[in-house]
Amino acid sequence: MFEARLIQGSVLKKMIDAIKDIVTDINLDCSSTGISVQAMDSGHVCLVLIELGSDGFEPYRCDRNITLGLGLKALSVVVRCANNDDSITIKAQEGTDNINFVFESPNGEKTSQFEIKLMDIDSEHLGIPDTEYDSVVKMPSHEFQRICRDMSQLGDSIVVACTKDGIQFSASGDMGSGKINLRQSSLVDKEEDQINIELNDPVHLTFALRYLNYFTKATPLSPTVTLSLKAESPLCVTYPIGDFGSMKFFLAPKIDD
């Protein structure tokens, strides 16, 4: 038996909105410690990794490790039927080919039940190496979203450069070019507005903006985002989910010809 109740059902809605343009099917890997999802886009350029600890759910019950394959289209349709303040319970019995969703309003007056057929999804699990990044930049998530959106008006690629002076985003195309510099903030009122730059080594990488703009669909999940960069390595974009999980996107760089 698997059962997990998320008090803030809106978090599940936001997670699905964040990944539905990148992947079509996902496997929920459920174990006693929580739920994880690893999915790659069809072009093998980016990967989504969701990790949700069991402590984010009340109750959480997972008698035996179970993999639940879901089509995101069906999941998206069902989850959209929940109100933002509903709790969402996911239930699956061993040996059945259905997954159940129960939505409950905060006062308990309205409950809704939906069922989705499980799918057998053949997905390759990649081993993501532990990486010591050259630079780790934490910034407001809406700021990152804005930068990606603005830069994609100029070109298809963005160059991200971290130096002791800060982080620079630049793009160029037929129309012209643009550069945006961010420096570590000194004094801010709210911690979530802070720009924090950890620099071990200067790093300079190019990425396709199309994917970054997909990733920023996760902005409603968290006020902050972390960019982890290493020379000639995939970028890791992390959105924390409450204090019990995270959504990470890995993006392979563009390599000079």
Partner: peptide
């Protein structure tokens, strides 16, 4: 500009 790399060349199975 630049060639898009595949993630498979960085992450092992």
């Amino acid at each position: 500009k630049g060639t898009q790399a595949s993630l498979m060349s960085f992450f092992g199975k």
